[in-house]
Every structure is written in structure tokens, then in C-alpha cells.
């Protein structure tokens, strides 16, 4: 479904991605782990085409996101839903207008129909009845769930999660984890999440990949990752300050 091939990206002199290779199968839940500044966010932004690589390709459903332009990028993006770290809800629009935003832009549905779809998606994330609230009035966990409802509004084939549990209390984090699993099972989506929350990674991943110094250093199932011999991965998953990973 998604193939990242030999991806390079530098900002000025800073090399962020230095030859990333990663394959994500259809219907799979891939979690990319790595420390702050390891380039996880940059990777996920390349997958949805928000950033253009210096070198390499991102093949999605047979098309290379890195080479597409303008309208073709937008057409490919309609396959995606993305949940941002801070939810990135539009402050000036109410909850249902946020959830129904893409429907309003890309379908001929009336406002009434959009509102109904938005209500349905909100129900899926456990937030029925808040259609008319404004984003500023929501708590962090609610914002994330509205963001998730917005991400699934167009029934995407691929869902991207940028640090889905960061900044939430452990219980709310688990609610989000359950929702991510539910999305995969109910909607059969392919999902890519980036996180440094190992509890979340073990729970939601089919496979985990670790990004370090601009490269994928290990890919495996949660079990394989737990019993890895790779000292880099070992240090990261056990959360130790001592080890081969240099702390800047």
C-alpha cells in the first residue's frame, strides 16, 4: 500500500532523513518509534505530501507522491485521513463543520446531510451530540477525538496519526488507542502512527519500525521488538539514558 524508498531530506545543513526504506502493507498498522528530533514527523509529512523529499520516492497505490503535482497530489490525498498532534481543528468552525470540512469541499452533499454524517462519525469516537460546540470549548482528549472523526469523514483508506497519545492522561491515551484499533478493524484502513509512547506502540501496532539518525534501524512485530538484540532499540524501548543513543 505504501512504499517509502530511499528517502532523503535535509533542512539546510541538517540531514533529517538519510535513506529511509519502509514498506507498509494494506490493512496493516505500522508504528514508527524514535526519539524527539529523529525525523518521525518529517517522515509522516512526506507520506501525505506536505514535504517534498530531496531524493527518493513514496509510492502510494502505485503513484509516487514525491513526483505528483497540484491536482494529482490532492486526488491522492483524498485517500488519506490524518490526525494531527494538537488535533489542528479549525478554531473558526464548529465541531460538525470541522468534521464535515472535506465533505463540504469535495462532495455535493447539503449542509443537512453533512451534519448527519458528522454526527455519525462523532458517535464512532464516542462524542455524540457535541456538533454545535466550538473547538475552544473542548478538552484535549475531546479535541483529539474530534480530529479523528474529521480524519475518517471521507472514509479514507489510509490513516496517519501524529503522536496520537502525546499530552493526554493515561486513561484518555488508552481510549485513543482503543479507537485506533477500532478504526483498523471496522474501517479496514491501513494506518501509520508515529509515537514515542511505547505502551501505545505495543498496543496498536502490527509492526513497529524504529527511526534513528535518519534511517530505519529495525522493523518487527511488537514481540520481536520487545526481545530485540539491537542495542539502539533496546535502549529506546526500556527508556534508558545510558546506551549507544547519544542524547543531545
Amino acid at each position: 500500500m505504501i512504499q517509502v524508498i530511499n528517502l532523503y531530506k535535509a533542512f539546510g545543513n541538517k540531514k533529517v532523513l538519510a535513506g529511509v526504506n519502509l514498506e507498509i502493507k494494506k490493512g496493516e498498522s505500522m508504528v514508527v518509534i524514535g526519539g524527539s528530533g529523529s525525523g518521525k514527523s518529517v517522515l509522516i509529512k512526506h507520506i501525505i505530501g506536505l514535504l517534498k523529499p530531496d531524493k527518493g520516492s513514496i509510492i502510494i497505490a502505485g503513484k509516487d507522491m514525491a513526483k505528483l503535482k497540484g491536482g494529482d497530489v490532492d486526488n491522492l490525498r483524498k485517500k488519506f485521513g490524518m490526525l494531527f498532534q494538537g488535533a489542528a481543528l479549525f478554531d473558526s468552525l464548529s465541531v460538525w463543520e470541522n468534521v464535515g470540512f472535506a465533505l463540504k469541499q469535495h462532495t455535493m452533499l447539503s449542509d443537512k446531510e453533512i451534519r448527519a454524517v458528522a454526527g455519525e462519525k462523532l458517535k464512532m469516537v464516542g462524542l455524540a451530540g457535541i456538533e454545535d460546540m466550538m473547538p475552544v470549548d473542548l478538552s484535549g482528549g475531546m479535541r483529539k477525538r474530534v480530529g479523528l472523526a474529521r480524519a475518517i469523514a471521507m472514509d479514507p483508506e489510509i490513516l496517519l496519526y501524529d503522536e496520537p497519545t502525546t499530552g493526554l492522561d493515561p486513561i484518555m491515551a488508552d481510549v485513543i488507542n482503543d479507537l485506533i484499533i477500532e478504526m483498523r478493524e471496522k474501517l479496514k484502513v491501513t494506518s501509520v502512527a508515529i509515537t514515542h509512547d511505547m505502551v501505545s506502540a505495543y498496543k496498536i501496532a502490527d509492526r513497529i519500525a524504529m527511526l534513528y539518525e535518519g534511517k530505519i534501524v529495525e522493523v518487527g512485530t511488537p514481540d520481536e521488538i520487545k526481545h530485540t538484540k539491537n542495542p539502539l532499540v533496546k535502549q529506546f524501548i526500556t527508556g534508558s539514558a545510558v546506551g549507544p543513543i547519544k542524547v543531545g
Binding site: 509529512k45 490532492d74 490525498r77 490524518m82 478554531d91 470540512f101
Partner: peptide, 18 residues
């Protein structure tokens, strides 16, 4: 500017809206 730093502008782009 606030929309940019809170990723709302990116969110627009991901929903295929320029």
C-alpha cells in the same frame, strides 16, 4: 500565523484543500 503553528494550514492541505 496561529493556524500555521497549530498545523491548521497543514490540516487544510491534507484534506485536499489548497
Amino acid at each position: 500565523g496561529t493556524m500555521r503553528v497549530t498545523e491548521q494550514i497543514d490540516a487544510l492541505a491534507t484534506m485536499a484543500t489548497n
